[in-house]
């Protein structure tokens, strides 16, 4: 899924970029979707990738950098093959987010913000994911998992390649 070589879209990806740009009254509005595409393709958004995207949008690289650094879902460094984001906002905190985080730190052997040495999992603590009815909860890649217990967390981790 990640392609660490030079940052360069294929012809098919470039056609998708043009389709995305054409959806909006101003093509610059496609910047977020295209940065998402960069991240899905190359794994993260490097400074080189920012410059490449700036070229696709006729924007200064500084504008792209400003956008990449503003949003939490854009990664400027390589991340793990899976990202586990534990909600630590109010309801999840009341329902045991600190215990969830402690269990994950112990199981993964990394602190919040770090990636396991084998590159398998990046562990994050994040603000409200708006699934408070299943607190404590986390997001693993595209999926929400709630009503967490240590046993359930272990099952989730076992499912990650």
């Amino acid at each position: 899924m990640s392609r660490p070589a030079a940052v360069q879209f294929t012809a098919g990806e470039l056609a998708l970029v043009r389709r995305l740009q054409a959806l909006y009254p101003d093509k610059r509005a496609a910047l977020l979707p295209v940065l998402q595409l960069v991240q899905d393709t190359f794994g993260y958004i490097s400074l080189e990738a920012e410059e490449y995207v700036a070229g696709l949008f006729d924007l200064p690289p500084a504008h792209v950098h400003e956008v990449v650094t503003f949003y939490t879902l854009f990664f400027q460094e390589p991340k793990g093959r899976h990202v586990v984001s534990v909600c630590h906002n109010l309801t999840c905190h009341l329902e045991g987010a600190p215990t969830v985080l402690a269990h994950l730190r112990m199981r993964l052997g990394v602190d919040v913000g770090a990636t396991t040495a084998d590159g398998r999992v990046t562990l994050l603590a994040v603000e409200c994911l708006c699934a408070c009815e299943m607190a404590p909860m986390l997001q693993v890649d595209d999926r929400y998992e709630g009503n967490l217990t240590p046993a359930k967390i272990d099952r989730i981790l076992e499912g990650l390649e």
Partner: peptide
Amino acid sequence: VVVHRGAGAYICGEETGLISSLEGKKG
């Protein structure tokens, strides 16, 4: 209808921050 995805920022729920973000800027 165009479905547009945000990228993680509470402030984009504020309507003018949302517009900035929709336009391809920080929110």
